[in-house]
Design a protein around this nucleic acid. Structure first.
Ligand SMILES: [Mn+2]
Ligand SMILES: [Mn+2]
Ligand SMILES: [Mn+2]
Ligand SMILES: [Mn+2]
Lengths: 218, 218
DNA sequence: CTTATTTTTTAGTCAAGGCTAAAAAATAAT
DNA sequence: ATTATTTTTTAGCCTTGACTAAAAAATAAG
């Protein structure tokens, strides 16, 4: 059994090593956990003792298979709970992350199994992130960032990269949610800004908006 | 915001002062928390500083109104989650307590409100215990222990005092659940044992069984 | 290559929440 | 009214997971 703190570190390292390749730096872990580098060092040393990750002084950390398995289970719980909160309790997609951050630490295999069945074994959470199955396998999806599209291409929104309440609320205001079709009417190569069409509305979006939205082309 | 440990102590003290009258002894708290008296002393001193309870050295502890309010909210969450686990996820009544013990510590007022609505604002948990409303009011019920009935009286099971898995599984085996009618066919005054009728079955039960089952007469 | 800067680790401290052993107060038994 | 026993508190120590300040290693600059 892992403590709350350990679980949160493991999950953070898991997410960090998804993006960057190679070992995860202690500073990156500290920043992601909103703590100090010295604290992160202490924790990764402990987790290395427990064979949850491999750690080389001054080089960084990397989850072992064991560590990845633990992380995946937590991510699965987090995302299943988010689906529950949205689909069953009627929460809005910008309200669920903090609560799921707590719920992901409830220990009960039977609970996960039953919750999953109750929700109809969803493959994606309310932000479009894939929910790993009971064996830890993620559904692979073809998706790109809206910012990668060019003028007169279009895509269907399938998820968000950022899932802060602020960003999600912006998307709501613009009537963008998962499944929404987005046409790129224009793209400014100087700053990456775009003019897009959503439904009947046409408007300008900054690069920052465009590079946090996942779309499926095809 | 109160820590996990603080919340568990507050809830334990709340339950202890329901039965016994007057202040709750430090030893009783320690036993109920499965910890040592010295640890309980430390905690009640801290909770007294926080005005959650009044504490007099060598005399014991008593929750303040503030403390009772905190406790009631935790009990409400615990019991609502138990209803969720049984009604929605199909758990059996002897499997839910441990999980609810964790879920009761999730912090979100909105979550409690929505969960309550989702469950149809239940008044009782799966063990027949009343669920306090959002203002902390418990529904008062007329109930007595089965052991208080005499020969040829009858009652309808409305709850259990003990809710250990073992006891609940015994009741299952005997086909006793909430709503079951129980006839007292005989009572032995020497040891408090009884012969009861449940459905078409007649059998012997010990005093220990009889004094952990709540029934409603009339 | 040598120095400066950044990153990371170590050393030492702290609060929370446990523990054991000893002291003190309350209660029970002579 | 003492003495013995039980209950409760205090004192001191431990682990976890933070922190700061200082040292050490890695990296960047000159
Ligand atoms: Mn989330
Ligand atoms: Mn978390
Ligand atoms: Mn319970
Ligand atoms: Mn609990």
């Amino acid at each position: 059994m892992y403590s709350l703190a350990e679980e949160n570190y493991i999950k953070a390292i898991f997410h960090l090593q998804q993006t960057k390749t190679g070992a995860v730096s202690t500073n990156a872990i500290a920043e992601s956990m909103d703590t100090k580098a010295s604290s992160a060092t202490d924790m990764v040393q402990k987790l290395a003792d427990k064979k949850v990750l491999s750690y080389i002084k001054y080089k960084g950390s990397k989850l072992t298979e064991k560590g990845k398995k633990i992380a995946t289970r937590i991510v699965r719980k987090h995302r299943l709970w988010e689906v529950f909160l949205v689909d069953k309790l009627g929460f809005h997609w910008d309200e669920v992350h903090e609560i799921a951050e707590q719920l992901e630490h409830i220990h009960s295999n039977e609970l996960i199994k039953r919750l999953d069945a109750f929700l109809g074994s969803p493959a994606f959470d309310p932000h479009g992130d894939p929910i790993p199955d009971e064996h830890g396998n993620f559904m692979k999806t073809e998706k790109k960032l809206l910012s990668q599209l060019n003028k007169s291409q279009y895509g269907v929104c399938v998820g968000v990269k950022e899932s802060s309440a602020e960003y999600l609320q912006y998307l709501d205001k613009k009537k963008i949610s998962i499944g929404t079709k987005i046409n790129v009417l224009g793209k400014e190569f100087f700053d990456g800004s775009m003019v897009i069409q959503v439904g009947r509305d046409q408007f300008f979006i900054s690069k920052q908006i465009a590079e946090n939205l996942y779309v499926q082309t095809n």
